[in-house]
């Protein structure tokens, strides 16, 4: 088994998948903490469907770089949903659900009617579940991931205190002079960038799972914000790496294997949380 693993690890496509998968998982987990705590768990899902819809339009239009369409569309949706913070919540979960389901349906409609590809259902499967796309990355994709995650980590390190303040208590932060809407719009843009990149590379199912699972898991056990941020990044990276390796060895679909790993870890943390609480 180890021989087989080292054989695969020598292949560039496996290395690319590991690097990109791990970096995307890292960014998604960091951003997921603030999304989950601000009660926006579902936004990751909606935005990844918006990105899916934009992706189908881009592929039908035969754009050379479909990213040029996906990114601005997702950013626009993200800023509209997240940029206004608490006040935007008036739009409610119904609007989110409509956006999510609507863009999924429209995306499929477009791909079905206008796609020139011979195998439509494989295309849909690929864009939704990232069946093979993560194993067909080019060095160019990997470099974008590296740039994206460096940006994401820098923003998180330097704005850490402000992100905490805005996440914990938006009103208080605004009253004491933090420029809340600037931070919220900045976060919304980065979230959109990570989600569109992630949907593009690994499919929309994996994208939304990567955002919510690590944060929700570690919140069961850890009690400080700093620990939650760090632990969810670590957990997400381990799950992504483990999931990719497992999927290669067991020849299972990459995206769903990573999500399965995340689910297992979630239940592990639930159990651990209960044990910790039981003892005190």
């Amino acid at each position: 088994m180890f021989d087989q693993l080292s054989l695969y690890l020598a292949q560039p496509f496996v290395q690319y998948a590991l690097i990109a998968g791990v970096l995307i998982a890292l960014c998604a987990a960091l951003l997921g903490v603030t999304l989950v705590l601000r009660r926006y768990s579902f936004i990751g899902d909606s935005l990844s469907h918006v990105a899916f819809c934009a992706m189908t339009v881009a592929s039908v239009l035969h754009l050379l770089t479909d990213f040029a369409l996906i990114l601005p569309v997702t950013m626009l949706a993200s800023v509209l949903l997240l940029g206004k913070g608490r006040r935007a919540k008036i739009k409610g979960d119904a609007a989110l659900a409509m956006l999510s389901v609507g863009s999924l349906a429209v995306g499929y409609l477009i791909i079905n009617r206008f796609s020139s590809s011979a195998n439509i259902s494989a295309d849909v499967c690929g864009t939704l579940f990232g069946t093979t796309s993560i194993l067909t990355l080019k060095p160019y994709d990997v470099w974008i991931c590296v740039g994206m995650s460096i940006l994401c980590i820098l923003v998180f390190v330097f704005l850490y205190n402000r992100i905490f303040a805005v996440t914990f208590d938006e009103t208080f932060a605004a009253a004491t002079g933090t420029r809340v809407s600037l931070i919220q719009i900045g976060l919304a843009l980065i979230i959109a960038a990570v989600i569109s990149l992630s949907t593009h590379l690994v499919g929309s199912l994996l994208t939304s799972a990567l955002i919510i699972f690590p944060a929700l898991s570690v919140m069961r056990v850890f009690k400080s914000f700093r620990a939650v941020v760090v632990a969810s990044a670590v957990v997400s990276v381990l799950c992504a790496a483990g999931g990719i390796l497992a999927s290669i060895l067991l020849s299972t679909p990459v995206g769903s294997t990573i999500v399965a790993a995340d689910i297992l870890v979630f239940f592990g943390f639930c159990l651990a949380g209960r044990l910790v609480r039981g003892n005190t």
Binding site: A165, F168, D169, A173, T176, G177, F225
Partner: peptide, 17 residues
């Protein structure tokens, strides 16, 4: 109600201004 943050972290955020 279910925010993971220590008392120290919460109070420190008051110094942000």
């Amino acid at each position: 109600k279910d925010f993971p943050a220590t008392v120290y972290e919460v109070v420190l955020s008051g110094c942000l201004g």
